[in-house]
Computed example of a mutant assay.
Amino acid sequence: MMRPDVLNHGYRPATKLLFKLIRMFSGHPVPDAAKLVFYRPDFYGARAKAFTHAAMRGPSAWSVADRELMAAYISQVNGSAFCIGAHTATARRAYQDGPLVAAVLADLESAPIGEPLRATLRMLGKLTADGTVSADDMRRVLAAGATTRQVEDALAVCAAFDITGRLADAFAFEVLSREGFEAGAKYLLKRGYS
């Protein structure tokens, strides 16, 4: 993919100033995911931020850490390097357990997590890879102990990160350094996606 120049230059003066302030105070460039949201916010950015914030930080029986792990897992299935880095770092920080996150991403079936989360991640992986799930897939998630509301919440996370991952790849988002992803994770856990 060729990176569109608009991610570097297509902003209003106030937005450019904001980006400079963020870089000055954080010591890191603004991630391309944020740049994309600020480019034509009336068309994409405002709606994407609101939807993603509700999916990731709205009321849910899933913890913030669980939802960040879902985002990392979905991103891994999609093969989106930027999103894998961003949400793996955020899940590690949210759980305060890097080995747990690594175990889930390495082998879901043997990872030390509860069955409702495992079954939900399995279903999200199938939906992401195949674009479809069956009634039997949903019954298995419910039989593992997830509630219908948890399934709905997980599907919202899946929608948000299937879209974001595809945009990240289409726009050739720059993959940050580990320090850059850690700074982004700290921001996401403090401020969310709004």
Rank of each mutant, 00 (worst) to 15 (best):
A46I: 12
E109A: 15
L100T: 08
T52L: 02
D97F: 07
V104C: 13
T90S: 14
G58K: 12
T90M: 03
G131I: 02
T52G: 00
S63K: 02
Y39T: 11
A61C: 00
L124N: 09
R122V: 04
A54R: 13
F43C: 03
A119S: 14
L117D: 03
Y44G: 10
P116Y: 05
W62C: 01
H28D: 09
S75G: 10
H53Q: 14
A86E: 01
A106R: 13
S75V: 07
T132G: 02
I74S: 04
L124M: 12
L108D: 10
G45T: 09
A55M: 10
I74Y: 00
Y73D: 08
G45Y: 09
M24V: 05
D42S: 11
E109Y: 06
T128S: 11
R122S: 12
L100R: 11
S75Q: 06
G98V: 10
R23C: 08
L127V: 04
P116Q: 05
A81K: 13
A65C: 07
I84N: 02
M123Q: 10
D42Q: 11
A71R: 01
P41M: 06
S75Y: 04
M24F: 14
D107H: 13
M123S: 09
P116E: 06
E68L: 09
A46S: 15
K35A: 06
P116C: 06
A106S: 14
D97R: 11
M70T: 08
A102S: 15
I113D: 04
G85E: 00
N78L: 15
C83E: 13
I113P: 01
F82L: 01
P99A: 13
S26R: 14
L124W: 01
Y95G: 11
I74L: 06
A48K: 10
V104L: 12
A65D: 05
Y39D: 12
G27M: 03
D130R: 13
A65E: 05
A89T: 06
P116S: 06
E68H: 15
D97E: 10
G125R: 01
T88V: 05
K49D: 05
F38N: 15
R40T: 10
E115V: 00
G125F: 09
S75E: 07
Q76S: 12
S110P: 00
L100M: 15
M70F: 13
S26M: 12
P41Y: 07
G58D: 12
M24W: 14
D130E: 15
T128I: 11
T52D: 02
A65I: 08
A81D: 12
Y44S: 04
S134P: 09
V37R: 13
L69H: 09
T132C: 01
R67W: 02
M123P: 00
A102G: 07
P41H: 03
R93L: 15
G131W: 01
E109L: 08
Y73L: 02
V30E: 07
Q76F: 04
M70V: 08
A103S: 14
A119M: 08
L117K: 10
R57S: 09
L124Q: 08
A102P: 00
Q96T: 08
Q96R: 14
R67P: 01
S80G: 08
L127A: 11
A86F: 02
V133M: 11
